[in-house]
């Protein structure tokens, strides 16, 4: 019985989130956007995340470079360091790392913000004033995430590549020009498209899950629960969709 209840709850959740996504797209194309609130969300999701993304992307780039260099040294192929760092970052780690950072930082805050608005009746107040909460609260966050995440991914890729260059330069005395030429030559359009498509999916996942969970608490004690749940579910879905999209780009 417990197992059946779990299955029923799962399908209920999926059904609810699908109708939530339908409503987001309905409102996305129905009303003119308030640029002030959109700007506020873009600053919060994108610009405020730059420092954290910079720090982590730089170190991830250096870590990949050290790890790759360690293996390449055994084959005396250190020259390929730049291409391997670039490919790992642009195709895989850049989008995933940026998405996980944004989910943890902005996603948690989005869920907590909407959740506290719900329990303090601010969401009801919106409805009383004839304003659809999904349109007013969710759509600007969705747009901000879908616009900012690709930008953050490109930025994370560049910083990571620079981190790789620091290792290549200090450990193997690779000149900047050579490192960059090896990086550019190794990257095709499909690799860059791969990273950007993933970032669009991940931005949407964070918006859907974190906003949806934000509308679910009924008391203040529920807020911490839904924040944890939204982060866990975003992380899982980001990794699952990363696997699916990686397989898709591998086969096309």
């Amino acid at each position: 019985m417990f197992f059946l209840k779990q299955i029923e709850d799962f399908f209920c959740y999926v059904g609810n989130i699908i109708s939530f996504i339908k409503e987001i797209f309905y409102w996305l194309f129905t009303k003119k956007r308030d640029l002030k609130s959109l700007g506020r969300e873009i600053i919060f999701v994108g610009i405020d995340s730059f420092f954290l993304v910079s720090l982590i992307a730089l170190f991830i780039g250096m870590i990949i470079a050290f790890q790759t260099a360690y293996q390449l040294q055994q084959f005396k192929s250190e020259i390929h360091l730049a291409s391997l760092v670039a490919l790992s970052l642009v195709r895989e780690l850049g989008p995933v790392i940026a998405a996980l950072i944004v989910a943890a930082r902005s996603g948690a805050s989005i869920t907590a913000g909407i959740g506290s608005m719900k329990i303090s009746e601010q969401v009801d107040a919106l409805e009383v004033f004839g304003v659809e909460p999904i349109d007013y609260l969710v759509v600007p966050k969705f747009i901000a995430l879908v616009v900012c995440l690709p930008v953050l991914v490109i930025y994370a890729d560049l910083l990571g590549i620079f981190g790789g260059y620091l290792v290549g330069s200090l450990k193997f005395s690779m000149p900047f020009g050579l490192y960059m030429r090896m990086t550019i030559e190794s990257l095709g359009v499909i690799d860059i498209a791969n990273g950007l498509v993933k970032s669009l999916f991940f931005g949407s996942i964070i918006a859907f899950v974190c906003c949806f969970e934000g509308f679910r608490p009924f008391s203040s004690i529920d807020v911490s629960k839904v924040v944890t749940r939204s982060i866990v579910r975003s992380f899982i879905l980001i990794i699952v969709f990363d696997c699916i999209l990686t397989a898709f780009f591998y086969f096309i």
């Binding site: 608005m117 303090s120 009746e121 601010q122 009801d124 107040a125």
Partner: peptide, 9 residues
């Protein structure tokens, strides 16, 4: 007028 005012914070 909401119980806890419900002003948009």
């Amino acid at each position: 007028v909401f119980q806890n005012s419900a002003l948009f914070d």
